[in-house]
Write a protein that binds this DNA or RNA. Structure first.
Length: 802
RNA sequence: GCGGAUAUGGCGGAAUGGCAGACGCGCUAGACUUAGGAUCUAGUGUCUCACGACGUAAGGGUUCAAGUCCCUUUAUCCGCACCA
């Protein structure tokens, strides 16, 4: 039996492709462009994992198919190589991060090639190379210049263990993303990027792109737009305004107390008037140091302390109400202060219960003795003066008009998304090119790239200082404006920086005059299909959309939205159905699989194993099925009749159908069914003792995106001296995808009782007559009255009897 | 708590409202073999000797016809999480 040496064959074709630059994208080609993008990997020391293979293979299939369809395909690869693991490894081993990164990139490059990915390796970018991060710094300075990068004294999430300031996104649930320890709030000077200036634009842009609905939803939630009213309450004791934000102005008559955040500046400002200031201080301290555990405990009840000596006045009815400090109100959202309506807000309700505040019902419909009534669809206003009898929506309109016309309220839109904390106290990142001058303030250092200085030890300084702070000679620098002694910013950028614009660099990766030429970007952008993990669909995507939109506004980039289409890969679980992890010991190393079964089998299996976007468990047994399938295709070579020029007659229908289905399945991210249809067709082929050369050529054309090495090999053995890379994707004849004979199902009262074959498009009458003649049908209708017969041409006849 | 998804054989999973279980794995029997973790052939949802009946998380509904549409419930997963 004929078989082939997988290792030899795969090596042979990889050498062929990569030495002939088979996948090089051509700038400004006459062909229609197609830009397929995968999230570039972080080159970790452990090499690729199966998740990479799945994400990369799927778009490799798309890229290979598009090339066969005549597109000029850009399918680039690069490395997002700044980052903590490399730095930590450097600290531990003393090996320079540069060296570690170079080594890991080499490993990755090798592995990528062993999987046979059709990346354009002439366009590789590495975010840690000065000729790349020069432009990352340049974009930062652009933002700085436009006032979109600013330094502010602020409360930040700080991990005492890593001694690093964390972005909100890195400290979700109050835990450090890296080490899991408790994050505390710390006052610090922090660089921010003003992404909030783009909140609306980032939301609006989602209307013009084709992302998975789930992805859009998550981005919308992340931005978290809510429309409401900012209302001025007066503080009784000194007549100053206390601003609150509410989306429920209709409940204004139900306000029984106010709550401000523990960090609210009011407390410091009016501390002379506050009688229990020390008690408040104590509470504020406690709040700042709450652990995650305590937080969860306190979620049941709401803690807080009343400010004695200060009261507020409700602007609509003049009532005097107490003010509390409580940590269920966040300084960062809205105004950091709320009006509390316990009858109609569940948090205010539980706080009121805890602290014996009155609860006044202003919307009828619920039972406020039991719980807050928050329905906004059905309730009717009561106890609310001129709002009585109105529905919630109407009341909102009316009260808003009232507040605005009297100057005590203003329509306001709030967003959950906050400005992006942009500095890290780490070595292995892009230095922030800013000089702090005692006379001129923060000044841009336009002498780019500002290279990472050499150093030997990479430990962060104490108290959240960057390792770079210890390089006194590097830090001390003359101010570019006044020429006096000044100091460099010693923090570096977060890892999100380099990945926020890499897709632009791919258009023109060797340009040393601009981040990329406008014309080349104009040719390639937008990315036609971007694919990657679900874990990056908020942070990375929103950050990079922000940068792109900013650069678009600056006239540097030609498109407003960088990604026309975005899909996400489902996780591959271990054989035990659990997430792959070292501790579970259920990790599958893709290189082991390539060694044992070959890259083609791995590629085919990884797309066959389940619905693309769903998580699916790995199965060692399953992979053998794909190996068998590919082996069988190779053995078809033995049956080829080189005399026969066209398709074997019997196979015309199945072949045309398969061409149609495989093509549309790939476009629709249904790789598993695309492969199953190829398997079905191969089962058809297996029935016949001879195949024409064309039969097999068409088959390998369809299979080529999935198993390119095997298909090149078969193609060569068929005597063809061209590469599959440039083969045409087969066309199909629509008329031949439809069978001339169809099988009609016959039901009696909706239950299947028989079938019969008949010529396609036979008329209803013929179907009906034929159905009634069937023996199996007669059994079920004799002695009964036929009430109705439903006939669906080419499909079904349903006879209704009783 | 809010938002989103998912639920189909022993397993992974297919099914524009029209023959549920494609395709693959596994399993059973047979063929070829010194051998089989190779290959080929046939079979494989459940109950029943069979005719047949029952089957897509549970319950209801719409329809000639429901895995698919509508309502209720349950379970699992993901995201956000005191967002005013």
């Amino acid at each position: 039996m004929k078989n082939y040496d997988i290792k030899k064959v795969e090596k042979k074709w990889q050498d062929f492709w990569y030495s002939n630059s088979s996948f090089t994208a051509v700038d400004f080609s006459e062909k229609t462009k197609y830009y397929a993008l995968i999230e570039f990997p972080y080159p970790s020391g452990t090499g690729m994992h199966v998740g990479h293979i799945k994400a990369f293979t799927s778009l490799d299939v798309v890229a290979r198919k598009k090339r066969m369809e005549g597109y000029n395909v850009l399918f680039p690869i690069g490395f997002d190589a700044f980052g903590l693991p490399t730095e930590n490894y450097a600290i531990k081993t003393g090996i320079h991060p540069r060296e570690v990164t170079n080594r890991n990139i080499k490993i990755f490059t090798n592995q990528l090639k062993r999987a046979g990915f059709s990346f354009d390796f002439s366009r590789v970018v590495d975010t840690t190379q000065a000729d790349y991060y020069k432009w990352t710094q340049w974009i930062f300075l652009k933002l700085f210049e436009k006032g979109l990068a600013y330094k502010a004294h602020s409360y930040v999430n700080y991990c005492p263990s890593c001694q690093v300031v964390l972005a909100n996104e890195d400290s979700q649930g109050g835990q450090c993303d890296r080490c899991g320890s408790e994050v505390i709030q710390k006052e610090k000077d922090v660089w921010f990027l003003k992404i909030t200036a783009y909140s609306e634009s980032l939301l609006e842009g989602l209307e013009h792109v084709d992302y998975l609905p789930r992805i859009k939803m998550e981005q919308i939630n992340w931005i978290g737009k809510s429309e409401g009213v900012e209302v001025k309450f007066k503080i009784k004791e000194n007549n100053e305004d206390l601003l609150i934000f509410t989306t429920r102005a209709d409940t204004l008559f139900g306000v029984t107390f106010m709550v401000i955040a523990p960090e609210h500046p009011l407390i410091e400002r009016l501390k002379d008037k506050i009688e229990n200031y020390s008690e408040l201080q104590e509470y504020r301290n406690l709040a700042a140091h709450k652990t995650e555990f305590e937080r969860l405990q306190m979620n049941k009840g709401k803690t807080g302390v009343r400010i004695i000596g200060l009261n507020a006045i409700n602007p609509v009815n003049g009532k005097v109400i107490p003010i509390f400090v409580a940590d269920y109100v966040m300084l960062a959202y809205g105004t950091g202060a709320i009006m509390a309506v316990p009858a109609h807000d569940s948090r205010d309700f539980s706080f009121a219960k805890e602290h014996d505040c009155p609860i006044i019902e202003v919307i009828k419909g619920g039972d406020i003795n039991k719980e807050a009534y928050t329905d906004i669809e059905e309730g009717i206003l009561c106890n609310s003066d001129f709002l009585n009898g109105l529905g919630v929506k109407e009341a909102q309109v009316k009260i808003t008009e009232y507040l605005v016309s009297r100057g005590i309220g203003e329509k306001m839109i709030n967003y959950k998304m906050k400005d992006w904390a942009f500095n890290r106290q780490r070595y292995w990142g892009e230095p922030i090119p800013i000089i702090k001058c005692p006379h001129c303030g923060y000044v841009a250092d336009n002498n780019l790239p500002l290279k990472l200085p050499e150093m030997e030890h990479f430990q962060p300084g104490t108290d959240g200082e960057s390792p770079l702070a210890s390089l006194k000679d590097w830090v001390r620098v003359k101010c570019p404006i006044c020429n006096q002694m000044a100091e460099r910013e010693t923090d570096t950028m977060p890892q999100w920086a380099g990945s926020s614009w890499y897709f632009l660099r791919y258009c023109d990766p060797h340009n040393n005059k601009e981040l990329a030429s406008y014309d080349k970007m104009k040719y390639w952008l937008p990315v036609d299909w971007y694919n990657g993990g679900m874990e990056h669909v908020t942070r990375h995507m929103i950050y990079s959309r922000f940068w792109n939109q900013f650069l678009y506004d600056e006239g540097i980039v030609p498109v407003k939205e960088p990604y026309a289409r975005r899909t996400a890969v489902g996780l591959i679980l271990g054989e035990d159905g659990e997430k792959m992890s070292k501790s579970r010991g259920n990790i599958v190393d893709p290189i082991d699989i390539i060694n044992e079964y070959g890259a083609d089998t791995l590629r085919t299996y990884i797309l066959f194993l389940g619905e693309y976007e769903q998580p699916s468990p790995w199965s060692e047994a399953g992979i053998k099925g794909c190996k068998r399938f590919l082996d069988r295709i190779y053995r078809f070579l033995e049956k080829v009749d080189f005399q026969a020029k066209s398709y074997s007659k019997e196979l015309e229908g199945p072949i045309n159908k398969t061409i149609k289905d495989v093509g549309s399945d790939i476009e629709n991210v249904k790789f598993n069914t695309a492969i199953s249809k190829l398997m079905t067709l191969s089962n058809e082929y297996a029935k016949y003792p001879k195949l024409s050369k064309k039969d097999l050529e068409t088959f390998i054309a369809l299979l080529n995106p999935f198993a390119p090495h095997l298909c090149e090999e078969i193609n060569e053995q068929l005597g063809n001296n061209y590469s599959m890379v440039n083969t045409k994707w087969p066309n199909y004849d629509e008329s031949k995808t439809i069978d001339n004979t169809v099988i009609i199902a016959v039901q009696v009262n909706g239950k299947l009782r028989g079938t019969f074959p008949i010529a396609k498009d036979s008329d209803k009458k013929a179907l009906e007559e034929k159905a009634l003649e069937l023996e199996s049908i007669k059994q079920h209708i004799t002695g009964k009255t036929i009430r109705k017969i439903i006939v669906v041409p080419n499909k079904i006849v349903n006879i209704v009897v009783n």
